[in-house]
């Protein structure tokens, strides 16, 4: 008798990194921001987060059962979508908003296009854009005062910043999230912890947040002050609004960002430029959502044209130059 030996194509060993592991890392990285949201805006935030995550996971399971596919809720990708969406919502929204938003993100944006790896825009952001178009008042007025937990319907500090180029908030207030804003976007400290965790764990590429925030800061410094150049407050531009959560957690979504390092840098820069344009000269107070969605759509184009330099490229280049030189002569 002979043992049955397995025949497969090499390599015969695989790394220990898995899709689930990566997704779990992202969930872990988002937890500080979620905790910060609950601390700053109270129990309501927790409700919004839980509703969003539960709806995302349930939608994925229901859809996959309905179309008789394998149920893949254990890969954590639905959890991330739900969590990300919740963190971009105003803390005082009615609970049905995250429920509908997450269901939309999972079913319409992700599963209908083929599930994990096949969506062409970031599900959480597409759902946020949908909610913004569907219930604009809830999405722009349901704020809570940090640590006071009372409802506020005034505009976020970003609106004033965009028109005047300055903000009354101190760096400390901005860094710790002591301002009106979506429940997960305000606390820069928590986002930084999560973002650095992902970079250290080699989950995300630092080039996207670097390109994004860098472009935004430099652009705001140049154009941010009305009537004057090179006097804008680039630092506050990064800390206000959703630029931080967007650049670290949304724009870095694998499926909808370029695959090459250089392409990722370009995506970050592109998103930064679009955010800047919308903020300074556009009709909306915040442009992060649309900037990243736009760059999601451009990603296939970037992947097509921004390719790594292949081994031996120099020889081909030399041959080309020689051929070109020969022609001119």
């Amino acid at each position: 008798m002979e043992n049955r030996l397995l025949i497969t194509s090499s390599p015969h060993i695989k790394s220990t990194r898995t899709v689930q592991g990566i997704m779990l890392d992202v969930v872990i990285a988002l937890i500080p921001a979620a905790i910060a949201g609950v601390v700053l805006f109270g129990f309501r935030s927790l409700l919004v987060i839980l509703a969003s995550v539960a709806s995302a996971v349930a939608s994925e399971a229901v859809y996959q059962i309905a179309v008789k596919r394998e149920v893949t809720i254990n890969d954590f990708s639905a959890v991330i979508t739900g969590l990300l969406l919740a963190l971009t919502l105003p803390p005082n929204v009615p609970v049905w908003i995250p429920v509908i938003g997450s269901a939309f993100a999972i079913v319409i944006v992700k599963q209908v296009f083929g599930g994990l790896g096949a969506n062409f825009v970031n599900p959480a952001l597409a759902a946020r854009a949908f909610l913004l178009a569907a219930w604009p008042l809830h999405m722009t007025q349901d704020w809570l005062n940090p640590r006071a937990y009372d409802a506020v319907t005034s505009a976020t500090p970003l609106v004033a910043f965009n028109s005047t180029g300055q903000t009354a908030l101190t760096f400390k207030q901005l860094f710790l999230g002591q301002r009106l804003g979506s429940l997960g976007e305000t606390c820069i400290l928590a986002l930084l912890i999560g973002g650095l965790y992902l970079i250290v764990r080699d989950v995300i590429d630092y080039r996207i947040p670097l390109g994004y925030l860098g472009t935004l800061a430099i652009g705001t410094w140049v154009f941010g002050k009305p009537g004057a150049f090179f006097q804008g407050d680039g630092l506050s531009a990064m800390l206000l609004g959703g630029a931080f959560i967007g650049s670290f957690f949304m724009a870095t979504d694998y499926v909808t960002s370029p695959v090459t390092p250089r392409g990722r840098l370009y995506m970050g820069i592109g998103a930064g430029i679009i955010t800047l344009i919308i903020r300074l000269w556009g009709g909306y107070p915040e442009g992060v959502t649309y900037a990243i969605l736009f760059m999601n759509l451009v990603t296939p184009l970037i992947d097509r044209y921004v390719v790594p330099r292949y081994y031996g490229y120099g020889h081909d280049e030399m041959a080309r130059r020689k051929a070109a030189g020969g022609e001119t002569r």
């Binding site: 994990l116 790896g117 695959v259 081994y311 490229y313």
Partner: peptide, 17 residues
């Protein structure tokens, strides 16, 4: 699992492919 386009394969390819 389906490809999630993480680009890790591009990072490691010694031939720049």
């Amino acid at each position: 699992l389906p490809c999630i386009r993480c680009g890790k394969c591009i990072d490691v390819c010694p031939m720049g492919l």
